[in-house]
Structures are given as structure tokens and as C-alpha cells.
Design a protein around this nucleic acid. Structure first.
Length: 454
RNA sequence: GCGGAAUUGGUGAAGUGGUUAACACGCCGGAUUGUGGCUCCGGUAUGCAUGAGUUCGAUCCUCAUAUUUCGCCCCA
């Protein structure tokens, strides 16, 4: 047997339903925010990511899926969405569009060659947003508000918004130098990883889990103190707009993020759910005003974020949030004889064409088993074809909940179904948590048939 | 890139170096209900992740590989 590749995921069944639902919410939300969908290739030239994300970042040095194609081209599977979109922005000269800023969103798979663990796969899906062509702090706040709104709509509770500012290039460089000077004399007191980090990415020392209680970290210089006046003012303005949007946030001066292209505003959205490992960051992003320039485009102020759909679903599961997914079937058509089966074929087709969610039997089951199948599919109405009835142009319809049967004339069928199914919309009572039967098969919705016995 | 744990049928799983791999659920068939969900009867892994080794003999021991899972680094 051939098994799937490490860190990949087969998405199907009820989990797939959840993804479809989340995607639907995202599309809807982006419509309201007036962001346009963009899809860029899953693979790009390796150089794009090396220059874009940063030669020294872990993502590029040890996590990319690289290969050489038959034309000797160096290719990399995209490890994130921003670089490809910036490339597209430049290549398609979107900076020349009349409509500025350019507000885009994407939703697709990304690839990172990593050791899989909770909340991290090699192929994973990110939804994200990029706004190119505006340095207005209002946009910073808006971009932060998107994942917040999304998680709120999905019903996730314990979300925490953390923000920080790295300042402009000047501020960031000054801060970096200050940190190195501060840590250098004491570096022996810190863990092995921190020693590694000192020159490569000193900002990350602040985020160290091993040394987090060390006074050295607590008293380290803070990003805020190294912002120049302009950067400081900008950060204040972002915070003001966040207040206007009524977004609760926390300034975390240790929040630095690992990709080279970030400056000014950076942010993360964390799930504080019991049972989430260390990969509890659901969304992250920030400003990257230098990236378009780095990739040979005109200087353009940009900001964006990305969130992992898989992690969001995981968080929803851990919080046991119930998504309003309707898993019922409107009509199940049953038959026994060959003539009934032929009639069933055209009837099913007819019902579907008229907008009813309809299914029927395909495996030669007996009538008894067809009833079971109908229950499994959560059918609301059963149509029991019977040669005798058909001779009279009549069809037997059974309400699978009340068990009431009615013989309906063929001409009247659609009307009958319309009548009965329209007010049969999702009955939230029925799908509540309160099911107390002993069966084990209902984690979410209970479809058990426990009559009002006794 | 580094480290820990796991891998038995459709599912949850028990189990042993040696004839037919427990049990439960599910599923299929039958009986009984006019058309099901209750009950009863029967069926349901020539197989214990894959490959190699130790052995008279391995699902059970050893090694390798794959996948899963949980951490570290890093990220969403």
C-alpha cells in the first residue's frame, strides 16, 4: 500500500465540511471588506523566496521544498503567500491601477519541509490578506481586524491580539545593535539556542522559552525605546485606530517575528485554548514596506497577515465550537423492483433539477437496509416507490421524523415537497447539546433515534 | 536538522514465540414486525505497517524503512 507523504493531509468527511464552511465565511467576509481574490502559482523560482523572505531565515535555509525541473530551473514550492503576491503585483504593474491601495486576499496551500507536529504540517493551508500601496495606520488596524472578525464570526472565544512595532529600518537596525551589545557580555548565561541566535537573529532571544524567566531577558532593551519619533507616532496612531475598531490588544515588546521583511507594525493572534501546544498562533502578520523595492518594484508601503486554516479548525475543535453545518438530506428515494428503479432514476433527476437535495439507493440493498441508509443520511422525507401506486400516478411520501405517510399525486409532488420542506428548516433545538441518550456516536449533532419512550 | 512515543479488521481494541487472533460496535444476510430503527440467528482479519534478521517456528525478539503522534528550532 502506498501511504501519503509525511505531514500531508487527506481532507474528507466531516472535517472537510468544516473547511468548506470556514472557506465560505472567508469569502463572505472578504466581500464585505472589499478585498479581491488573487491566486498565484504554488511554485515559483527559488530566487523569489530567497530574496523576498530573507536569505538567513529558517524558512528559507532549512524549510523549503526545492527541486530542479526538466528545464533545469530552480523551483521552490511556496512556503508562504506574500512573496508570490508581491511578485505578481510588480509583474502585473498593479501599482499603476487607478484603484489604490490594492487590497488582495488569498487562500491556498503552502509547503514547508518540517517535522510535523500538532498544528503543523508540511502541506498546510493559509488564508491571508495583502494591502499594497498605503502607509496609512488605518490600514494596519483594518488588516488586524480581519482575522479578529473572522474568529469572532466562527465563534472562537479565547483569542488574544498581540501587537508590537519594529519601527522603520533605521529604528530596527539600532535596536538590533543595542540588543547584541546588551547580550554579548552575558551570552554564556543563556541557552544554546540563544547563543546561536545572538548574531543571526538577536530579536528572537527575547522570545526564548528556556530563558524566559532570566532577569537578563526581563531587563533587556525594549523595541519601543528604540523607535524614532516618526515610528513612535505611527505606532500610537495604529493603536488609536484599534481602539476605534474596539479591538482588545496587548502590546508585547518581545513580539518580533521571524521573517526578514517585517517593519513597523507586527502582530499575532493567539488561541488560548487548553490543550494547544506551542503552535497556538492562529494568525500573524505585519508591515513590509521594503519588500516591493527588494523585489525590483517601486517603493511601496504594504501590510498583510496570514492565518492557518488548519489551526483555526483545530482551535474550534478544542473549544468544541459547533459550526452550523447542515448534514441532512431532503429526500431519499427508495425502490425495490426494476420498474420502480427506472422510475427512481428519473424522479431523482427531476427532484434535483428542481432544487431538492436528493439521494437514492445504488448498491442493491433490500428495503430494510434502504431505511437504514436513509437514516444514516439524515433524510427528512422518504419516497417509497411502489408499482401499484405508480399505476395510479401516485407517490408515497413518508416524513421520516413523524413517520406519517401520505399518498401524493405525481402532479402535486413538487408543491407538496415545497410546502413541507420550506418550514422544515434547521431545527436548532434538535441540534443542541442537550441530547442525553447513551449512544456514543454523536460528538456534534445528535442524530440518534431515541423516541419519546416511557 | 534534533529528540520521545506509537503502528493488530470498517471502527474501538484484547492477546500470545507454536494448532481455528478474544470481545464490542459497525456492516451484510436471514427470521419476526404490512415498511426500517427492538429482539433473535448467521456471516464478516489465510491477517497483526513494510522489508530483512534471530529461531525448528514470530503478530509477539532485533535492526532498518514508512507513516502517525508529541516536543525542540522556527513558523500560520
Amino acid at each position: 500500500m502506498i501511504s501519503k507523504q509525511k505531514g500531508c493531509l487527506d481532507l474528507y468527511g466531516s472535517t472537510a465540511k468544516k473547511w468548506q464552511y470556514v472557506n465560505k465565511i472567508i469569502d463572505n467576509l472578504m466581500e464585505k471588506y472589499n478585498y479581491n481574490y488573487i491566486r498565484t502559482p504554488i511554485f515559483e523560482s527559488s530566487e523569489l523566496f530567497h530574496r523576498g523572505i530573507g536569505e538567513s531565515t529558517d524558512v528559507v535555509t532549512k524549510e523549503t521544498y526545492d527541486f530542479v525541473d526538466r528545464g533545469e530551473r530552480k523551483i521552490t514550492l511556496r512556503p508562504e503567500g506574500t512573496a508570490g503576491i508581491v511578485r505578481s503585483y510588480i509583474e502585473n504593474k498593479m501599482y499603476g491601477d487607478a484603484n489604490q491601495p490594492v487590497k488582495l486576499f488569498y487562500n491556498g496551500t503552502m509547503y514547508r519541509y518540517e517535522r510535523p507536529q500538532s498544528g503543523r504540517d508540511r502541506e498546510f493551508t493559509q488564508f491571508g490578506v495583502e494591502v499594497l500601496g498605503s502607509d496609512d495606520p488605518l490600514i494596519d488596524a483594518e488588516v488586524i481586524s480581519i482575522p479578529v472578525m473572522l474568529l469572532q464570526i466562527l465563534g472562537l472565544k479565547g483569542v488574544k491580539v498581540k501587537i508590537n512595532s519594529l519601527g522603520d529600518k533605521e529604528s530596527r537596525d539600532n535596536y538590533r545593535k543595542a540588543l547584541i551589545e546588551y547580550f554579548k557580555p552575558h551570552i554564556k548565561e543563556l541557552c544554546e539556542d540563544c547563543n546561536e541566535r545572538l548574531l543571526k537573529n538577536p530579536l528572537r532571544i527575547l522570545d526564548c522559552k528556556v530563558d524566559k524567566d532570566n532577569d537578563l531577558l526581563k531587563n533587556a532593551p525594549k523595541t519601543i525605546d528604540y523607535l524614532n519619533e516618526e515610528s513612535k507616532k505611527r505606532f500610537e496612531s495604529v493603536k488609536e485606530y484599534l481602539n476605534e475598531l474596539e479591538i482588545d490588544y496587548e502590546v508585547d515588546t518581545k513580539l518580533v517575528r521571524g521573517l526578514d521583511y517585517y517593519n513597523h507594525t507586527v502582530f499575532e493572534i493567539e488561541a488560548s485554548v487548553e490543550g494547544f501546544g506551542s503552535n497556538n498562533v492562529l494568525a500573524g502578520g505585519g508591515r513590509y514596506n521594503g519588500l516591493v523595492d527588494t523585489l525590483d518594484g517601486p517603493e511601496t508601503a504594504c501590510i498583510g497577515f496570514a492565518c492557518g486554516i488548519g489551526r483555526i479548525i483545530q482551535a474550534l475543535d478544542l473549544e468544541e465550537v459547533k459550526l452550523p453545518i447542515d448534514e441532512s438530506l431532503e429526500i431519499f428515494v427508495m425502490y425495490v423492483s426494476d420498474t420502480e428503479k427506472k422510475y427512481a432514476a428519473s424522479l431523482v433527476n427531476y427532484l434535483r433539477a428542481n432544487g431538492f437535495k436528493t439521494d437514492t439507493e445504488y448498491t442493491g440493498r433490500g428495503l430494510k437496509a434502504q431505511f437504514k441508509q436513509a437514516d444514516r443520511l439524515n433524510a427528512k422525507y422518504l419516497i417509497l416507490l411502489n408499482d401499484e401506486d405508480l399505476k395510479n400516478d401516485e407517490i408515497k411520501i413518508k416524513n421520516n421524523k413523524t413517520k406519517e405517510e401520505e399518498l401524493v399525486s405525481v402532479d402535486y409532488l413538487l408543491y407538496y415537497l415545497d410546502e413541507h420542506l420550506s418550514d422544515e428548516d434547521i431545527d436548532f433545538e434538535e441540534y443542541s447539546d442537550d441530547c442525553e441518550c447513551d449512544c456514543e456516536n454523536h460528538k456534534g449533532h445528535c442524530h440518534c433515534h431515541h423516541e419519546e419512550e416511557e
